[in-house]
């Protein structure tokens, strides 16, 4: 037992679920402690100052105490303005949160990843179109994989270690890397162009083809680590059926 309160530190709320009558279990993401589960006591009471505060995408300063798996939240205050994610970016924000909930272990420092998450949310807050949202998600997925120790090989071939060429087609095999693809050879992993990997690395994912290939690559790689349970927030990223019909007609 360590009843001592931690120092005030930056955090984001990833998820909140009701607990008992007036409390909630809040999953926080912090730089020094990674993902932390805390009990926010009395948050559901009408006068609780935490009610509107402990929402996703609001930069916070928090402190907690307790030594078990679940801590008790003692302080939570806003750190500057809430990142007002436009409604069209919310589904992407939930997607980031779900990835962190599923892949990041509790109580495991994530200094770099926290910075990436913060930057990604800020990018989502100002994203103008679908392409900008997609780019933000791809860069975050790249950084997440790196932080988890599954970094992608984005600049050199597997086996030979030769630098990637932009126009060359590659067969990206998960946990191995890109292997050059000759002529009409069938890819065992994901078939893509060198430019896609180079652009993903250099943060210049512009072209339609590169975006499509990067999405396919990330999907396949993440699926490996996520296991069979699908990501629920992907459902929301897909537009409602009626809205889709309208645009395709």
């Amino acid at each position: 037992m360590s009843p001592r309160q931690t120092a005030l530190q930056p955090a984001y709320v990833l998820h909140q679920r009701a607990w008992r009558d007036s409390s909630a279990i809040v999953e926080l993401f912090t730089p020094e402690h990674g993902r932390v589960g805390v009990v926010a006591k009395g948050i559901k009471r009408p006068r609780s100052p935490w009610r509107g505060l402990l929402q996703p995408f609001q930069p916070l300063l928090v402190a907690w105490q307790g030594g078990g798996e679940l801590k008790t939240l003692t302080v939570a205050e806003p750190q500057g303005m809430a990142l007002r994610l436009p409604p069209s970016s919310l589904a992407s924000g939930f997607y980031l949160n779900e990835l962190l909930m599923r892949l990041v272990a509790r109580q495991d420092a994530q200094l770099t990843l926290f910075g990436c998450y913060d930057a990604s949310l800020r990018a989502l807050a100002t994203a103008k179109d679908e392409a900008a949202l997609e780019r933000t998600l791809r860069y975050f997925e790249r950084d997440l994989l790196t932080a988890l120790g599954y970094a992608l090989a984005l600049d050199h071939e597997a086996e030979t270690g030769r630098p990637l060429r932009s126009a060359q087609r590659y067969d990206y095999q998960i946990e191995r890397g890109p292997l050059p693809l000759a002529g009409d050879d069938e890819a065992q992993g994901i078939a893509l162009h060198g430019e896609t990997l180079l652009a993903l690395r250099a943060q210049r994912l512009q072209g339609e083809r590169e975006r499509r290939e990067a999405k396919r690559l990330m999907r396949a790689v993440l699926a490996r680590y996520l296991g069979p349970k699908p990501l629920a927030s992907r459902q929301m990223l897909v537009r409602p059926a009626s809205a889709r019909n309208e645009t395709s007609e």
């Binding site: 994610l85 409604p87 919310l90 589904a91 809205a243």
Partner: peptide, 19 residues
């Protein structure tokens, strides 16, 4: 007016606009 509530409203508004 929670983040989830906003997301829900946005999702429905797209369905509604499409009609």
């Amino acid at each position: 007016p929670t983040v989830e509530g906003e997301a829900t409203a946005h999702y429905i508004s797209e369905m509604v606009h499409a009609r």
